[in-house]
Computed example of a mutant assay.
Amino acid sequence: MDYEIEQIVKIVLYKLGQLKQTNIISTLNYPVDLKKQLEDAFVIIEQEKVSACTLGTDIWIPELTCKQLMSIYQGIPSDHQSEIVVEALLKGYKVTVLSTSVELLQMASIKTPFTKRYFEALDLLEQSGLKIMKTVNTLEDAMKNVKKDAEITKQNDAVSGEKVVDLEQKVLTESQLIHYIQQHIEVVNIKPTTIITPSAQDFIRQNPIRLNRK
């Protein structure tokens, strides 16, 4: 797809509501490849401050280290980016980051009582508005989203032979799904009232795991 056609497609998809605006903060240091992916997939609005962003649009951050994670969780920001995330979450914004840029998720196989605190912190942040994306959606993804969502809703209940787990918690997060994938879980039974975080919904679309409301 050449540049001019791509721009026309982006405008059309944006007007149809299939391509979203997203924010980046000019004072943060984004990797060149991430910034390029965001520019290809969204209508980018670059702002200097959180307060200048439109409420209801996501704010992307470059990374989330374990130190930043715990400082945000404790409400004592360790650096400029942590301050931005705390402010954004307190004001009701959605903060988005790639899963490959979340340091804790690169250590997902390490399960100890100590790391449990970090995963609990990550779960709380997800419930508060943090979205962890596996990939940056492309224009092609945007065009396929409606069809893909329809196909997902038509999936049948779990069949015999599949590995199933019952979720007891009230909220389903991406970090829980990552843990289930590592255990080769294929179907997660959830209650009708279970809340599914946005990043968990994205993870389900991109991985071989299904939900079954019971």
Rank of each mutant, 00 (worst) to 15 (best):
M1C: 15
D2Q: 13
E4C: 09
I8Y: 03
Y14H: 01
G17E: 07
K20V: 12
Q21W: 00
Q21I: 07
I25A: 13
N29D: 14
V32T: 14
L38R: 02
L38E: 07
E39R: 06
D40S: 13
A41T: 06
F42H: 13
I44R: 03
Q47I: 04
E48M: 01
K49R: 08
S51H: 03
C53L: 05
C53P: 11
T54V: 10
T57H: 14
I59W: 02
W60D: 02
W60G: 04
P62S: 07
Q68P: 06
S71L: 08
I72T: 04
I76K: 03
P77W: 04
D79L: 05
D79Y: 00
Q81F: 00
E83I: 07
E83L: 12
V85I: 13
V86P: 12
E87D: 07
L89N: 10
L89C: 14
Y93W: 11
K94Y: 08
V97D: 01
S101W: 01
S101Y: 05
L104W: 03
Q106N: 13
M107A: 15
S109Q: 02
P113L: 10
R117E: 15
R117G: 15
R117H: 15
D123L: 01
L125R: 13
E126P: 10
Q127W: 04
Q127R: 11
G129T: 06
I132D: 08
K134T: 12
T135E: 09
N137Y: 03
N137G: 07
T138A: 03
A142L: 11
D149H: 05
I152G: 06
V159P: 05
E162V: 09
E162Y: 00
K163E: 15
V164G: 09
V165A: 09
V165D: 04
L167P: 01
L167H: 04
E168R: 07
V171F: 06
V171N: 10
L172M: 10
S175P: 00
H179L: 10
Q182K: 12
I185P: 10
I185H: 00
I185C: 05
N189E: 15
I190W: 09
P192G: 01
I195T: 09
P198R: 05
Q201G: 07
Q201S: 08
Q201H: 05
D202T: 15
I204T: 02
I204A: 00
I204L: 14
Q206F: 03
P208Q: 04
I209L: 06
I209Y: 07
R213V: 15
K214H: 05
